[in-house]
Design a protein around this nucleic acid. Sequence first.
DNA 1: CTGAAAGCGCTTACAG
DNA 2: CTGAAAGCGCTTACAG
Lengths: 357, 357
Amino acid sequence: MTSLDDVARAAGVSTATASRALSGRGRISAATRARVRAAAEALGYVASATASSLASGRAQNIGVVVPIMDRWFFASVLDGIATRLAPRGYDLTLYNLTDDPDQRRRLFDTSLRRGRVDGVIVLSVALTDDEIAALGGLGRPVLGLGVPRGGLPALRVDDTAVGRAATEHLLGLGHRRIAHIGQSVTTDAAGTPGRTPDVDIPTRRRRGFEAAMADAGAPAAVFVPADFTVAGGHDAAARLLDGDEPPTAIFAASDEMAYGVLTAARERDVHVPRDLSVIGVDGHDLGGLFELTTIDQFPHAQGERAAEAMLAMLGDQAAAGEGAAASDADSPRRTEASEPALPFSLVVRGTTAPPRG
Amino acid sequence: MTSLDDVARAAGVSTATASRALSGRGRISAATRARVRAAAEALGYVASATASSLASGRAQNIGVVVPIMDRWFFASVLDGIATRLAPRGYDLTLYNLTDDPDQRRRLFDTSLRRGRVDGVIVLSVALTDDEIAALGGLGRPVLGLGVPRGGLPALRVDDTAVGRAATEHLLGLGHRRIAHIGQSVTTDAAGTPGRTPDVDIPTRRRRGFEAAMADAGAPAAVFVPADFTVAGGHDAAARLLDGDEPPTAIFAASDEMAYGVLTAARERDVHVPRDLSVIGVDGHDLGGLFELTTIDQFPHAQGERAAEAMLAMLGDQAAAGEGAAASDADSPRRTEASEPALPFSLVVRGTTAPPRG
DNA sequence: CTGAAAGCGCTTACAG
DNA sequence: CTGAAAGCGCTTACAG
């Protein structure tokens, strides 16, 4: 491995000058810079990330905490983040958040604290208060995406509005007997019971559903708790469809749950959308295949936005260190955590239609 | 941030001793070790990864090169890798391989060479010779998974056997007019034309298909090139079904392509499996929803295996450095790159049946 | 088993 | 604009 000293020697300058020429920090004459860069190029020099990090305190690396990364939604967000980080020269290290308490503790108490990352983006629906506190104690920018509100600067879609939009689409078609399949939130992903109500995504979608139903004077809104999976959606729909008064429309809290609903309907020869309308949430990439009506929340774009926001937070931090020039209140680069809610959009396809009769 | 010096001071030992006590390297009295660990615990000490890496040369970090991470298959492999790395204390940094030549060059010539990773796992179907050479020049273990053969130690399934197994399942049901939808390989993912034939996955699956057809004395095997996507499968199937002699069975080179085939069939009122049998490859998580018959290749397990193999390669390297005690030939930890092929398994569901009549 | 010292390869005040 | 020097926070021969 050729080192910076090799480059400096080849260019006939000191190591310090070589460093400045290559990094662009500090004043350097154009001639010297060119000479050093040529030498670096000729020698195939690449700066050691660890040495550079240790000396500068900048890791040029963002940590991303993800639960279940083989779920399309998270993979898509991840891809969005990576898309924006790479061109800025930042690496992305992945931290998988499982349900295993020991593993979680190790993640928050050790892995994230090893100084390997400049900031952390957390994509998780369920964190304990201790975990949020641990993130705060990192002394680095932390940004949530899709995390419960409170405790963490975060980017989020207005999930109450999402629930309302989905429900109003069905109401607008003339449905009255509408059921919502969502996640029961008496326990979180880690099995920790008793989270504050009304703060997380499933709960907010449900609130939006209930509010829309109430506003429309529709009969008691039916809610069925289920896992956020195809199987969860399937089983919940089966119960509904086999019940006394099956709904004419189902609002599933995710597209994958909606796929399960479609399967349950097919098994029972309940025709969609003639006998049953179905709407999901996410904008899953296979939604077109199923002709699924959904609320797209653009996960890839969410990832891109999160990456941009993180980069801005790091920039702010750097700027703050540089002096008082940039006043925080008016700075265009100020933390985007207080940004307007992320966009979502109703995509009407073939699984929703007016009820029969 | 509390440093190792703080811990050493608190425990009343030298920094060197504190380091040994915490890392477990070198001989330490049990009493000293306990004292140091207690101090570290009390102070909430976590070693700086960058300092440790710089001093030891071990990054405790594996780089994973992935194309399109929001494709289920890759996300699943990635999850498998992460699953095995975390408990061993290794971080995982993600390198996204796009089709942009500049970005690719930067990845191989710079990012991967910054000394941030101890080894690299490459999940990609298409690398140029230059890129393979760059990986070789890293001076660190590199392991391919699903990469073309040659040039890189790699774990792989026997894709010729996969193609054969899928085809033989259809032949066994009595089909003779079978079409295969796969990827044309005159150009690779980067648009680089002219790769060596017979080395990559799509080509090998196709060879298996052709061999099985020939062995069975079946008429000229029909091959239709397409993208490895739902849309690709759909369009290719549309052409086949609208042709003069539509096949009675289609073997799609991926489950997502098979979904496209199913859609094309449905659009034409071609009933599956009565009028058309369909088989895919992968073991996609939504396969059950479509009742899709497939060749499962257990991507999550592939990721786990790849991680284990990489860890073994790193272990070997360390062992080699320790002396001649472990002879390479008999070592149980020797590189697993030459391991038996990865397993796959036929999963028969509802989309395949004997042809009519 | 333990400690003093050098070193990993950069970056960055501090002088000039 | 450039250089000498200290330092980032660990690890690891080398002695003892």
